[in-house]
């Protein structure tokens, strides 16, 4: 870690022989963040481009990583919204939703904090100097684009509706109605996705945070208090949903690939 002329050891500030006197494990947080995010990115990239094991036809389980399945390469039954994207190894089957979901998370206020602190070390931890000579934050291109986060929130809302629909149509089996472990997993996943999406800071703003007079808008105020409750858990939900997304996808991939068979309760 460097300290440069403009930072903590620049006169007339109190000069010290070391950049930080923190002796606790301040590096643990950023290290865990890098590990967690890397695992997800590697897994998600592999799965998004694998173009296989995404659908269990028997029970109509579609993994969220392939929803909506709109490529000409998709199994017909899996594509509930038509097939129109060219079938190409570099175009994920869900190429209409994945980029928005990626941008939603990349511009998320929590993930921003997480990767600024860990990947960019700006700052690595509180009162630990950052290694960069210059800093302009989110005042310039490209980071000024973080300000359009709320559009990705709207897009993510639409995708959450689609995921909900996927989870509902999955209650089937060759003999009609069906219920299996896959359904439970899909439902839990979609419920948590909603919780994460609705806990978004942009959501909190548009639902009521932008108002000056809560008393004139009792319904929006009530909604705002609920969103604020969720918002307090935004970081937890951000991590939990990364985990549930991977688990859901992994379970469906295992069932679709014939490695395991779904635990069935009905049908």
């Amino acid at each position: 870690m460097t300290t440069h002329e403009t930072g903590v050891n620049a006169p007339p500030r109190a000069r010290l022989p070391v950049p930080t006197l923190r002796a606790d494990r301040w590096w643990l947080g950023p290290a865990l963040t890098v590990t967690g995010l890397t695992i997800f990115v590697v897994y998600a990239t592999f799965r998004a481009f694998q173009q296989a094991h995404y659908f269990v036809a028997e029970y109509h389980y579609l993994t969220p990583f392939y929803s909506p399945c709109v490529s000409l390469g998709c199994t017909e039954e899996a594509s509930l919204f038509g097939r129109f994207l060219p079938d190409h190894p570099l175009i994920p089957y869900a190429a209409v939703s994945l980029p928005f979901l990626l941008l939603f998370r990349m511009t998320c206020y929590y993930y921003r904090k997480a990767y600024y602190r860990s990947f960019w070390l700006s700052p690595p931890a509180c009162a630990v100097p950052e290694p960069h000579r210059k800093y302009t934050g989110e005042t310039r291109f490209p980071l000024i684009l973080q300000n359009i986060h709320r559009y990705f929130f709207y897009a993510a809302g639409i995708v959450a509706v689609i995921n909900t629909y996927d989870a509902i149509v999955a209650f089937q089996s060759p003999s009609g109605f069906g219920l299996g472990l896959g359904n439970v997993i899909l439902l839990v996943n979609v419920a948590l996705l909603w919780a994460y999406t609705l806990s978004c800071h942009s959501c909190r703003h548009v639902i009521g945070g932008r108002l000056k007079h809560f008393s004139k808008h009792p319904v929006r105020y009530w909604l705002w208090t609920k969103v604020s409750l969720l918002n307090g858990r935004h970081m937890e939900l951000a991590w939990i949903t990364l985990g549930t997304l991977m688990l859901t996808d992994f379970y469906i991939a295992m069932v679709a690939g014939g490695v395991i068979s779904d635990v069935r309760f009905i049908g």
Binding site: K113, P123, G137, E138, I144
Partner: peptide, 8 residues
């Protein structure tokens, strides 16, 4: 805009 919401 300088604030990068890192919460320190």
């Amino acid at each position: 805009g300088y604030c990068n919401i890192t919460k320190c």
